[in-house]
Amino acid sequence: MTNHLSTPAVQFNKVNRYFGEVKAVDEVDLEIRDGEFFAMLGPSGSGKTTCLRMIAGFDRPTGGSIYLYGQDVSNLPPYERSVNTVFQDYALFPHMTVGDNIAYGLMVKKVPKEERVRRVDEMLDLVQLKGFASRKPSQLSGGQRQRVALARALINHPKVLLLDEPLGALDLKLRQQMQVELKAIQQRVGITFIFVTHDQEEAITMSDRIAVFNHGKIEQIGSPSEIYEKPATTFVAGFVGTSNLIGGELAKRLTGSDQTFSIRPEKIHVNTTEKTTTMDTITLDGVVRDVVYLGLYTRYLIEADGVDIVVVEQNLKTTSMDVVSAKGQKVRLSWHKDHISRIGA
């Protein structure tokens, strides 16, 4: 028995995956801890799905090694890895009933029928699909199929569960509901979940840690708050939420260093009157160029020193009439100096 506290669930050691000339995954090092809900976030073609497929065994690295709880699995076929996958299109077997789909993993391992039936019932219970065992996948809604796919994977008690854009095909409301549910199921079964998504909000809502992928490399790994509040690169600052990137002369004047920094739109305050400022506040004068009223909040586009800055303010006291009239006004922007994040080269 390995010590799970020290052995990572999944470890990438300088993993490469080339498709011809294209470096889909480029020298990736990665450690995913036992029991964590880990998100691989990135735009399409960033290498996140290829990484997931290499953990599952559908794809093999061109170079480097992948370890599963300390065991080198780089060249093991999928059926010899204790990892299961929830596919983007669910990949339910259309010629089998829901019950047979869920029991599939046990069936191929020749688990006795009685035990199969019992465990399928347990799983249907877990995903709240009691009484659906005899239906065909074609008779289910998208959300129900998703649950079946989840049950089919979890019944095998995998050490790691992989989810490939699991909520991509669902509508917004169902997606938000499933986000909460997936998280709850993960906490109940207590195994490592690794999920791939291009939706930064989903990654932030659900995961313990996020790896942000771009061009086959990992830009940053960290907790959702770290990723959001302290983006390490220009790409992360732009991909996860919206960011204002300020560099060069203006950065030097504001912070004393010409290193580029990022500041989130909601951290900036728009003041029309001159306010006394403290030592910790950074201020900048500008002109409101555009205003977009969005109900819950308002988005301002402010030009200051030739730089466009996006600011978001909640409509706590303002109405649509107030905000629209702000266009063209001179304003003073201010933010706390701890709210900036310096961006690496």
């Binding site: 559908f58 299961n84 596919f87 191929v108």
Partner: peptide, 20 residues
């Protein structure tokens, strides 16, 4: 993805062929 799913769930190539 169905072939991959079968393999993922532990089916060896012959089992995947026969069952899927």
């Amino acid at each position: 993805s169905l072939v991959e799913a079968a393999s993922d769930l532990g089916a060896k190539p012959l089992q995947t062929f026969r069952t899927v």
